[in-house]
Simulated assay, not measured.
Amino acid sequence: MRVRPTLSWTPSEDLPPGTTDPGPVADALSAGGVLVLSGAGISTESGIPDYRGENGSLSRHTPMTYQDFTSSAQARRRYWARSHLGWRTFGRARPNAGHRAVTAFERHGLLSGLITQNVDGLHQAAGSEGVVELHGSLDRVVCLSCGGFSPRRELARRLEEANPGFAPVAAAINPDGDADLTDEQVGDFHVLPCAFCGGVLKPDVVFFGETVPPRRVEHCRALVREATTLLILGSSLTVMSGLRFVRQAAEAGKPVLIVNRDPTRGDRHARARVALPLGATLTTVAGRLGIPLDGQATA
């Protein structure tokens, strides 16, 4: 039986304070071999909210769990109605300065790898290559019966045809692409089966309560072993899927650096936490390293 993960975390008073000096990040990047682990916080400047933080979606929204999705047809109806609406907004998000800076660091040979906990595809949209999507991606759909994959855009087209006129106004869009809708707004939304076998379709993302594929976890552990420094960007590290890599790096004596305005569960393992907005911080770091962003000279 899979156990639902903890969805909230309260910082203890003995965590080290954050700093406003991005110097340690610039120093680590200048030496190269940096492995980046990004979280929802790097996408907030693209209009996608994070789970925690000051205005995090968990204060008003509990994400769909794997157990609920697989056991209840009504839960799947609610999920797909909300996700279909959210996809329209989610798909319009564009990379911000933080994503562009990470891509620039990669292209200048300063990174050994990039792992993201996000499912929004914005690192790839910014031009990053070899991104390890720890929790999968919303732009793919998988059938739970035959295991076949298909593009999300194809399912979106089918859902549009099956639900003409479906256009409720959502209260908010969440980091998993789920829109906040009432049961009345969901109504009798028509959920579609796999076009090949008639099975249940699920976005190719790791739901809360679901396990990250072991092979993917081992690949990430190998990246940690090969890196000289682990740089956390915009993750509270509340759930173990990301925190385990911080612990692995710390136990191996590798420096851990965090850029996140709020305290994180990994602060006690970090050399420093830069408590500043990500886009501005990474742009400043790029400027110190003489790395241009978007083809323009940095200040």
Rank of each mutant, 00 (worst) to 15 (best):
A250Y: 11
P214H: 07
P175G: 09
E54N: 01
R77N: 13
E13T: 15
H269A: 12
V142M: 04
P255F: 04
G23Q: 10
V246F: 00
R225K: 13
L243G: 01
H219P: 03
M64W: 08
A170W: 11
L85D: 07
R288F: 02
L134H: 10
D204Q: 13
R247H: 11
S46M: 06
G234I: 09
L35E: 01
L7N: 02
V224G: 07
F245W: 09
A171Q: 14
P11N: 05
M240V: 06
T19K: 04
R100D: 10
D21Q: 14
V132G: 12
N163T: 04
G33D: 12
I291R: 02
W80M: 00
I291F: 00
G47M: 14
E210R: 03
P168K: 12
A227F: 05
A172C: 03
C146N: 14
A101V: 05
S128M: 00
T281Y: 10
R247S: 01
T89V: 08
T238E: 05
N163D: 08
G234C: 10
L257P: 01
L159C: 05
H61V: 02
T281H: 08
A28F: 04
Q117K: 11
R2V: 15
E106W: 05
S150Y: 06
S8P: 00
G91E: 07
N174S: 07
S12R: 15
L35Y: 05
P49R: 13
I258D: 05
Q74V: 14
D183I: 07
D14C: 06
P263D: 06
I258Q: 04
I173H: 04
E251D: 14
S137N: 15
R82C: 09
N174M: 12
D188T: 14
R261C: 06
F208C: 01
E161I: 08
R261T: 07
L243D: 00
F149M: 12
T182I: 11
L58W: 15
D178Q: 02
A125C: 01
V206W: 10
E210N: 03
A126Y: 06
V191N: 00
G86L: 10
F196L: 14
